[in-house]
Design a protein around this nucleic acid. Structure first.
Length: 792
RNA sequence: GCCGGGAUGGCGAAAUGGUAGACGCACUGGCUUUAGGAGCCAGCGAGCGAAAGCUCAUGGAGGUUCAAGUCCUCUUCCCGGCACCA
């Protein structure tokens, strides 16, 4: 045996350099025949660097990039940095440095570590969102939204983190707390920029039907969009009409109160002088409550106050008392509801607490509130109709008298993008001396971040403290003009980066429409589940906006065709993070076992969509495999056998293809091992060894390339073609069972039941089992099994 | 509360309704005069047995089927999402 040591360090050093010198993975975007756009969710370049958890997704996407290349695809596999954001600003405060300096260092370090993954990235496409050459176009994008009236400044109650001193989007509030720092979120009234995502609610919902995404993500987005169908109903008061939205117009005759949100615009007018003091006190109280307190005891009791006014029921003309209560949200529907205590749990609790009448209008179960769909009662001419028909008829009636109509409401909110932070793209808006917002002129883009600032948080953007910024605005636009001092939510930066990868250095346009037509949608997008409702929703919104107004082809309905959510790697049961101190660095593992082994183990540690607990020892199994692989190939080279292993290879190959389709890389790794064990016992031909090597090269690029070269190839294995394997005709193997227990295999091409049964009975193992027994029944499944049921 | 998903050896896990535990880790024994988180060979779900083999076993209880980890009903526990959405 001419065994030679598997020296991973030497092999990997050699090929890393060669691949880089030959620019093996650079892609020609103009040649878009059978394109394949394989994208990682780009990382925030944190100062702490990469750990084995980050690797998992990068190795998986690289598997598919290489796999696609070997299948003859023209692959774009880019990488870049989502480099604006709070951590760099925090670090700058802590170390009295500048976020840019901090970010640049982190990017440099990140790039070095990413290169160790040996992913086949085309580094000529690299971008960073904090680079003025990039954020110039983020600002441009904002201005296009502004131009089409989809960006709007509004005064509204916003989520406010008292610790970070900034506004938070709904998605950044978790259980009433700041997602980032955990402080209890309060409400604050501020003038803020919103992007009108709600204009696209229906399109965002419909688009989910055409993407190949995990069901749970589609479900999350559907819930988030929250479409509900019902009717709007108008109640008349002395101070004007109050419109409500209901999903149950069939219960209209059960209304015993009208309840407004404390923030409803008509509250002040509807409040009678008798009730004024009480109402004002209540409104004040509600405003001071944090979301957590509001949520904590919603099922225990409902607080509410009577306004003193009444409204006319649109059908019965009865007087309905108007109340205000904080269980009615201003931000959903119309900010007012018709209270039907007999058929809604919250209305029921409210009516109980304040002793309001409860009128049952639908037959149903015995306990209040009745939520079943029964027949209408106490509803005048609509009695005896079933719930659904009743709803339709009542809605029609309302429409005919101008008191309502069919209506669909969405839960989705507009996207709040103003942040009172420094390290983000400045909002490219300039105000005239009257405070009216204007777009910053294109020739003034990028609107650069001012340098003369400190980063201490203080409830306003640090940018507001820049003297230079004030001077700049006046210099460019005239006396009294001033820039918006907030920066954009970093989700704006990441909502379009997949377009920029196609022309990252083009300083004449944000993206190249022609290339976008060729390369979008992204064929495979890989990243964590945490972006299910944030980034993925925003990117879809921006894509739909750009398509609608012709910035990109109208045929592009969705940015990401296929999505795969990679499960996190855990250590001691928790996701890896430096603050928890459970981070495993790849460095030592690479030193001991090599990059190939680490790549293999990342894909082997468990099903890719599920979280996996890290275990350094597991690397041993992969390492042994690579040593054995190396030995078997080195023994065979120059000494090839004649066995093509047609049967075995075809079976192996079929499984690998099937598993690759379904992201089952853990079982692919197992198939490699099993096939190697088969090879070990044979004298394999050069052909089967080469085919095998190609099939494992997406996981183990270094050793595959090295052995490929040793087999005499002058050109890289990544320029080879994926094997074409014809279905090997196998003689069917029937399982023969006696009394439900497996006995032996029967190989035969015979399909006639009687003949097969006779053959099976004649097998010595079977005959032994059947001795002295009576066959009651035999079950035959062609190509599968024979089962003899016996007695005695 | 509502909506999803899950529960298989000591561990990570495999199983188009058809031999449960593939593949790997750990462990045990042996080999290699072996710096090693290195390598090689063998064993390894539980119980009974010298062995052949038999019995039990996929959270729990029922059911459908010749046959159930897989399908159905109920149930327990765990994880994720939403959380007064009218």
């Amino acid at each position: 045996m001419s065994k030679s040591i598997y020296d991973h360090a030497e092999i990997e050093k050699k090929w890393a350099k060669k691949w880089q010198d030959e620019r093996l993975y650079d892609v020609d975007l103009s040649a878009s025949e059978s394109k394949y756009y394989c994208l990682d969710m780009f990382p925030y370049p944190s100062g702490t660097g990469l750990h084995v958890g980050h690797w998992r997704g990068y190795v998986l996407s690289d598997f598919y990039a290489r796999y696609a290349r070997l299948h003859g695809k023209n692959v774009l596999h880019p990488m870049g940095y989502d480099s604006f954001g709070l951590p760099a600003e925090r670090a700058a405060i802590k170390y009295k440095s500048h976020p840019k300096k901090f970010t640049d260092e982190a990017i440099e370090n990140y790039t070095r570590q990413l290169k160790e993954v040996a992913a086949s990235y085309d580094w000529t496409k690299e971008l960073s969102t904090s680079d003025p050459k990039y954020y110039r176009w983020t600002q441009w994008l904002f201005l296009q939204l502004f131009k089409h009236d989809l960006a709007e400044k509004r005064v509204s109650l916003v989520n406010w983190c008292p610790n970070d001193q900034t506004v938070l989007a709904n998605e950044q509030v978790v259980n009433g707390c700041c997602e980032r720092c955990g402080a209890a979120v309060t409400k604050k009234e501020l003038a803020q920029w919103f992007l009108k995502t709600t204009e696209f609610s229906q399109e965002l919902l419909d688009g989910l039907n055409e993407v190949d995404w995990p069901d749970r993500v589609k479900l999350l987005q559907r819930d988030w969009i929250g479409r509900s169908e019902g009717a709007s109903v108008k109640f008349t008061t002395e101070k004007g009409e109050v419109e409500v939205f209901t999903t149950r117009p069939d219960t209209l005759f059960g209304v015993t109160a009208l309840v407004l949100s404390p923030e409803h615009p008509l509250v002040v007018e509807l409040t009678t002088s008798d009730q004024k003091a009480e109402v004002e006190k209540y409104v004040k109280e509600v405003q001071s409550k944090t979301d957590i307190i509001r949520q904590q005891n919603w099922d225990k009791e409902k607080s509410a106050v009577f306004t003193g006014s009444y409204a006319k029921h649109p059908l019965t003309n009865e007087d309905i008392p108007v109340w205000i209560a904080d269980y009615v949200l201003m931000s959903y529907g119309t900010g007012a509801v018709m209270s039907v205590p007999a058929h809604d749990e919250r209305d029921y609790l409210f009516a109980k607490a304040y002793d309001l009448p409860i009128t049952q209008v639908i037959t149903g179960s015995e306990e209040l509130p009745f939520v079943d769909d029964g027949k209408l009662i106490n509803s005048g001419e609509y009695n005896d109709l079933d719930s659904k028909t009743g709803a339709e008829k009542i809605t029609e009636k309302l429409k005919s008298i101008g008191k309502g109509e069919k209506k669909t409401t969405f839960r989705l909110r507009d996207w709040l993008v103003s942040r009172q932070r420094y390290w983000g793209a400045p909002i490219p808006i300039v105000y005239d001396p009257d405070g009216k917002p204007h777009a910053v002129k294109e020739e003034h883009l990028p609107l650069l971040l001012p340098e003369d600032v400190d980063f201490l948080p203080g409830g306003e953007s640090p940018v507001a403290r820049s003297a230079e910024y004030k001077e700049r605005a006046e210099k460019l636009y005239g006396k009294g003009w001033y820039f918006d001092t907030d920066t954009l939510d970093t989700f704006v930066d990441s909502s379009w980066y997949f377009l920029r990868y196609l022309s990252p250095t083009d300083d004449t346009q944000a993206f190249n429409k022609e290339l976008v037509s060729k390369w979008l949608p992204v064929d495979l997008y890989i990243g964590g589940i945490e972006h299910a409702t944030g980034h993925l929703m925003y990117s879809r919104f921006i894509t739909k906006f750009l398509a609608k107004f012709g910035y990109i082809s109208k045929d592009i309905n969705e940015p990401f065709k296929q999505l795969f959510n990679i499960g996190a790697i855990t250590m001691h049961g928790a996701k890896m993070s430096k603050s928890k101190g459970n981070v495993v660095s790849p460095d030592l593992l690479i030193e001991h076992y090599g990059t190939d082994a680490l790549r293999g183990f990342e894909l082997f540690v468990g099903p890719m969509e599920v979280e996996a607990e890290w275990n350094n020892h597991g690397m041993n199994g992969i390492h042994r495999f690579l040593i054995k692989l190396n030995n078997i190939f080195l023994d065979s080279i120059g000494n090839y056998g004649k066995d093509d292993l047609g049967n075995e290879f075809s079976s192996y190959f079929g499984k690998v293809e099937e598993m690759a389709k379904n992201f089952r890389t853990n079982t692919i790794i197992a198939e490699y091992m099993k096939f190697l064990t088969i090879l070990e016992a044979k004298k394999p031909s050069q052909k089967v060894l080469e085919d095998f090597l190609i099939t494992l090269s997406p996981v183990y690029p270094f050793i595959a390339e090295e052995l490929w070269e040793k087999m005499g190839h002058a050109e890289s294995i990544f320029k080879a073609s994926w094997p074409e394997v014809k279905e090997f005709k196998q003689i069917p193997e029937l399982k023969v069972m006696v009394d439900q227990k497996f006995v032996v295999f029967l190989q035969t091409e015979e399909t006639d039941e009687q003949k097969v049964v006779e053959m099976a009975k004649a097998l010595p193992e079977v005959a032994k089992k059947l001795e002295n027994k009576e066959i009651i029944k035999s079950i035959y499944r062609q190509g599968q099994l024979i089962n003899f049921l016996v007695k005695g």
